[in-house]
Every structure is written in structure tokens, then in C-alpha cells.
Design a protein around this nucleic acid. Sequence first.
DNA 1: GACAGATGAAGGA
DNA 2: TCCTTCATCTGTC
Length: 177
Amino acid sequence: MKANGAHSMVTIPIAMPLGQFTARYSEKGLAGLDFPNNGRADLPVGLDARQRVPTDAVSTPIRRWHRTTIAALKSVLAGHEPDDFPPLDWTGKTEFQQKVWRAMREIPVGKTKSYGEIAQAIGKPKAVRAVGGACGANPIPVLIPCHRVLAAHGKIGGFGGGLDWKRELLRREGIRL
DNA sequence: GACAGATGAAGGA
DNA sequence: TCCTTCATCTGTC
């Protein structure tokens, strides 16, 4: 029953102690993850223990992926490696970006790499700035650990979701700058 | 085609 | 140590 359009996207909130994340799913898998916008206090933070998943409106695989996503998110925020990942939908992304993101996913919890090291890992040691661009285009922060990518010499670099998030995520993984 | 960018290295103050 | 300049590559307009 794909009532609406060819690529209907399902958006489901995830209530965490840090705030409400938002997951987006396509028919192929997890397509996006948003940080809580804690700049605005008008959004009620869902601190109910239960996650509100509209089970009647979401297909079975998406419900399963969502469970996996929540578990993975909790793991990373607790500072350890997730047991499992949902399938990720990178439709519409370039080959280069997917290479960069795959390389980032191989950084273990608690370790960091520099933009230059990612560039080397994908065989393009000089494409360091392009790697930065791909990081910024990362639709699934936290699960694709762009926060573990620092500039050279341990400098913090940048972060799309705000540098505070980057520092917080690194702190939770036991990384000190 | 031109330009900007979540870089990196080098050189000068 | 900090700032500026420059090399280099990809994405976007």
C-alpha cells in the first residue's frame, strides 16, 4: 500500500535523555537521522519510556529497522560499539560520499581519525577538503561517526550539527581533545 | 565554468 | 602560537 508517491519517507521521533532525535526511513532503510534541536524549548521532549511508533502506518521492516536504530543510537551514546545497524539508504548520494562514509564507519569507538587519514583510506590522499565536504553531507550522524573525524593535530574541526554535539559525543566515547 | 569548503602544510610576525 | 597563503579535490550552482 504505497498510497503516497514513489518514495514515501517515514519520519519517526526517538526520545532519548539528550532530547528527541528524528529518524527518517525510506523503503530501503534508514535514510536520515537528526539531532534534537535543543535550541528550542517549545518542543516537548518525549521522556516517556515508550517510543511512540505509529505501528499502523509503518511497514514491518521499518519497525524492525527502527528498533535496531534505537539500540544502535543508545549504544553509541553510551560509548560502545552497536551490536547491529539498520540498512542505510544512500540513494542519491555520490560514490565519493559513500566511500567516505564507509571509511568513517570503520573507525572504532573511542578512536579518531583526521580528514587526511580518511582521504588516504579511500585512496585519494589529496582529497582532504572534499572529505570534509562529504562529512558535512552525512545524513546519518552518530551512526556514521563523522564526529570521530578531527582536523590534523587533534584540532576539533567542524560539525554540521554544531560543535557542542561533536564534543559531547567524543566525551561520551572517552576521547579528550 | 566558477567557487566554496567540517583540510593541511608552510612561512612569517 | 596565531594568521595568511597556497595546493588540491569534490559538490553545487
